[in-house]
Write a protein that binds this DNA or RNA. Structure first.
Length: 640
RNA sequence: GCCGGUAUAGCUCAGCUGGUAGAGCACCUGAUUUGUAAUCAGGCGGUCGUCGGUUCGAAUCCGACUGCCGGCUCCA
């Protein structure tokens, strides 16, 4: 535990201590340090609201002022249990009610592990520690918010009140923390997206469904063009596939019905729907028939997988089966069918199919958040069909692409997570030799990238190892964006093959990869990353001509026409406003270049350049400026 | 989905304990023709999220629903 975490963890104890002074019946669960501070989960009949914070903080300050030493004490499990039964764990003294959550936590501590208490003043808590020497070392703290949380994160468990706070080693650091939060709030993509008119979410359309407005659409189009260009360089073929596919496709892939709770419900075929309605079929029966498969289909999948992947209870007589469509929750099945649409030779491989493919997933309503957590989103997806020998090189190519994307956007604070299988788990399918090879390929590729990476056993997808790019944003939040996954399972389930040099059929390996993840989430993160100050190549409006009076409107319009011809997104502000007002408006709308023109400029064929970042940059020849902005756009420069 | 908070004009918000809505910005019109972050004046605009209840009377009190915000949980 770092020093800061120790301070925060100690602050959590002080929080519990203070709450007990006010509400002696409070029952506590866990109180760990977290990224932004600490929390303690408490069960209490009184509903704590922010109005209570002042009172609690006052007690906390008193405890801190007393400089109570933290004392560690190792006890036996039996002693701990009897203390818990007396309500002394996370308590000030014996109480009528047992410390029920602490007793439960005790049962979760493995046999043989040391059990320790920490005491400060009269407060005692079951705790592994460590803690600061005494409470006065918690130099500055503040309670921030209260939320609810289920005990151990399980919705079947009691719901607790989670009191959040933060603490630092000095007041100055606490102030900085809140200043940073303020800044983060200003950068919130939902705020900026609305202010700049980049996207809209409309109740009449649906929660979690992004409407890209004209300005936002420009940003998206530029990102797509950028990616497309990189894809061509790397030998990808772009494809287009529809937003829906037959249910059987997802039964083959194994995603339906096993992931149905995170998908939009299936769409039955209209005539079949009418038929079963006339039979008086219940909703449950309809669902069962949609999920069911025929015996030969089940046998085929089970044989390919080499184990029972379709259980017998899903097998129904063909006359009972109900067919229909699904909004696609992923693009791979469609791409797989393109691969399978013609015979493939090893000479054709790798086949790299890319698409900006829109997928739909049923996220719980409480999970939706602006552009970063949505129900319909477009992946910059691609699937590579490769031979065993090509896996390592292709994975490396994918990683280079993600790196190129992030570097171009100036997103340099990222790390790479390599998700490996947990050899003890049965979740992971396929043979161990393949896994070893694929994991080695991923690790080698990650290492060759020259960025920090971590190995995460157990974090692989069930079908193969994966590599995730985790980008840190201004809030210090981690965003999982790009991902590269090796897949041995889907090619088998779909019965894919290619003819090898030996003339025999071989099963290709698939690589799934999406450098942005989704365009929606990525754009949301980009908005916050740039605080709406997009580099010229991405800016919806790249330059605005500001005539000092309407007397030079004609000159302004001639410049607009010329720059438009040369591919610059430019407008002119021909309003009757004074220059100061025009500048203010353009600045608030975060236009990278404001071009001031008056009679002087008109006479000299010049422009007065004002950049969003540097302010007045003085006059230059019109053509020099156009060349400058053209090259910044072409180079995707990050200068403005 | 669960817990808590919240919902007033396009935006940001005011409207104390119930007496049938207000400001600034934006927008429109007119005047002004302006030199690096707001020219002046006038005007338009809301069945106060929806539905129901209490009341002589509801933006205000109560309930349900919906959206949003903060968390929890989940993310092939």
């Amino acid at each position: 535990m770092t020093e800061l975490e120790t301070i925060r963890h100690s602050a959590a104890h002080v929080l519990a201590n203070a709450i007990l002074r006010i509400w002696p019946e409070a029952q506590f669960a866990a109180g760990p340090p977290v990224d932004q501070g600490f929390y303690y989960d408490v069960e209490l009949p009184h509903r704590i609201s922010p109005e209570d914070f002042e009172r609690i903080e006052k007690e906390m300050s008193a405890i801190i002022a007393e400089a109570q030493p933290f004392q560690r004490e190792v006890i036996t499990r039996a002693e701990a249990i009897s203390m818990g039964k007396r309500g002394e764990l996370a308590g000030l003294a014996p109480r009528p009610e047992a410390s029920k959550f602490k007793l439960d936590i005790l049962t979760r501590i493995p046999e043989g592990e040391e059990i320790s208490l920490y005491r400060n003043g009269v407060f005692t808590d079951l705790c592994a520690g460590p803690h600061v020497a005494d409470t006065s070392k918690i130099a500055s703290f503040k309670l921030t918010h209260v939320a609810s949380a289920f005990y151990l994160g399980d919705e079947n468990n009691p719901q607790l009140q989670r009191i959040y706070g933060t603490a630092f080693a000095s007041q100055e650091e606490l102030d900085n923390h809140f200043a940073l939060l303020e800044e983060a709030k200003k950068r919130d993509h939902r705020r900026i997206g609305k202010d700049l008119g980049l996207f809209h979410i409309d109740d009449a359309v649906g929660q979690g469904l992004i409407l890209w407005t004209p300005k936002g659409a420009i940003i998206r189009q530029e990102l797509q063009d950028f990616i497309s260009g990189e894809l061509s360089k790397q030998g990808y073929s772009q494809v287009f596939t529809p937003h829906i596919g037959k249910i059987g496709l997802y039964k083959t892939s194994g995603h339906f019905p096993y992931y149905k709770e995170s998908q939009f419900p299936a769409i039955p075929e209209p005539d079949q729907l009418e038929r079963i309605a006339s039979e008086g079929c219940s909703c449950a029966e309809m669902t069962a028939r949609l999920e069911a498969v025929s015996a030969p289909f089940a046998a085929m999948l089970n044989e390919r997988a080499g184990r029972e992947v379709v259980t017998s209870d899903r097998i129904k007589d063909p006359s009972q089966l109900l067919d229909g469509f699904m909004l696609k929750p992923m693009n791979c099945p469609h791409h797989i069918r393109i691969f399978a649409s013609q015979p493939r030779s090893y000479r054709d491989l790798p086949v790299r199919l890319a698409e900006f493919g829109t997928v739909y997933r049923w996220e719980q309503s409480g999970e939706l958040n602006g552009m970063t957590r949505v129900r319909g989103f477009t992946q910059d997806d691609a699937h590579l069909f490769v031979t065993e020998e090509q896996v390592a090189a292709e994975v490396r190519g994918c990683l280079e692409l993600v790196k190129k994307v992030l570097t171009t956007l100036g997103m340099t604070d990222y790390r790479v997570r390599v998700g490996l299988r947990d050899p003890d788990s049965t979740k992971f399918t396929g043979n161990p030799t393949q896994w070893d090879l694929a994991e080695k390929a991923c690790l080698d590729a990650a290492a060759s990238l020259g960025v920090p990476f971590t190995k995460e056993p157990g974090e692989a997808a069930f079908y193969g190892p994966k590599i995730d790019f985790v980008v840190k944003d201004v809030l210090g939040r981690d965003w999982q964006l790009g991902t590269v996954q090796v897949d041995y399972v889907l090619p088998v389930r779909f019965g894919l093959s290619y003819t090898g040099a030996d003339g025999n059929a071989h099963v290709p390996v698939m690589i799934h990869r999406a450098p942005f993840g989704s365009l929606e989430r990525f754009t949301g993160v980009l908005i916050e990353h740039f605080a709406g100050n997009f580099p010229v190549w991405l800016a919806p409006e790249q330059a605005r001509i500001l005539p000092v009076s309407q007397k030079v409107s004609a000159y302004a319009e001639s410049i607009v026409a010329e720059m438009k011809m040369r591919g610059v997104r430019v407008t002119a502000d021909l309003s009757a406003d004074k220059l100061g007002a025009k500048i203010r408006l353009a600045q608030l709308e975060k236009v990278p270049y404001m071009i001031v023109v008056g009679p002087k400029e008109e006479a000299a064929g010049q422009l007065s350049v004002r950049s969003r970042k540097n302010g007045d940059e003085g006059s230059i020849a019109k053509d020099d400026f156009i060349q400058r902005i053209e090259s910044e756009i072409r180079d995707r420069a990050l200068t403005v």
